[in-house]
Write a protein that binds this DNA or RNA. Structure first.
Length: 207
DNA sequence: AGCATGATTGACT
DNA sequence: GTCAATCATGCTA
């Protein structure tokens, strides 16, 4: 199996989400290459996780990607936006990781064009980073990272310190609501909701 | 009808 | 400039 396939299985999804911080998300477009380092990610733990799309074994055409091979792209829409997930664990085990923040690396001018914003507002949220990448449909849903123009490089940066918190926007009911399954690079300004006084403007929280 | 969201507003400092 | 509250948004079931 491929390197990416192996990366997204073999240990708990919480651990994979944490290790995903600092890895590079890369998108090859006709206009040029866009990439960024993952600053924020959340783990969703499938049937037993009351906040997960696959809670209680729920399976629909929309969340089918969660049930596929590790490293399968799961794109879903919410509130008229698109978000980017990667399926983790063996096929049939519907766990996954939501990427909520990126620090831009390549193609910054393309992202500014796509978003009509600049600076930290470019990619500090799940819908924002998809808009910055120019992704506004589900064409890549169900495609594996190994076979798509959108992929992840396991090289990148190393966080100085990883922060944890409950996940953002999960409805306030169910046992899993308050589990600390959100991981972020402490001090990085491209993390959603990062307050200015908590930002590390020198190293952005990287080693 | 219900959301794993984001932009804007308006009261603060 | 910061922060919390509010609501427009469009896809999914």
């Amino acid at each position: 199996m491929s390197q990416l396939y192996d990366f997204f299985t073999g240990r708990p999804t919480e651990m994979i989400a944490r290790e995903l911080l600092g890895k590079t998300l890369i998108y090859h477009t006709p206009a040029g290459t866009i990439s960024g380092y993952v600053t924020e990610a959340e783990a969703y733990l499938g049937p037993n996780d009351s906040a997960a799309h696959a809670y209680a074994g729920k399976r629909t055409p929309a969340n089918e990607a969660l049930y596929r091979e590790p490293g399968t792209i799961y794109i879903y829409s919410i509130h008229g936006r698109y978000s980017f997930d990667v399926a983790t664990q063996a096929a049939g085990t519907p766990e996954g990781i939501l990427v909520r923040g990126l620090e831009p690396a390549e193609g910054i001018s393309l992202m500014e064009q796509n978003r009509a914003k600049h600076g930290f507002e470019l990619t500090n949220g799940p819908g924002k980073l998809m808009e910055a990448f120019g992704i506004n449909d589900k064409a890549l849903n169900l495609v594996h990272l190994d076979d798509a123009p959108l992929t992840i490089s396991l090289t990148g940066k190393e966080p100085q310190e990883v922060g944890e918190s409950p996940r953002i926007g999960v409805s306030q009911k169910g046992d899993s609501t308050f589990l600390p399954l959100r991981y972020f690079v402490k001090g990085n300004p491209f993390v959603s909701g990062m307050r200015k006084r908590d930002m590390d403007l020198v190293r952005h929280g990287w080693q």
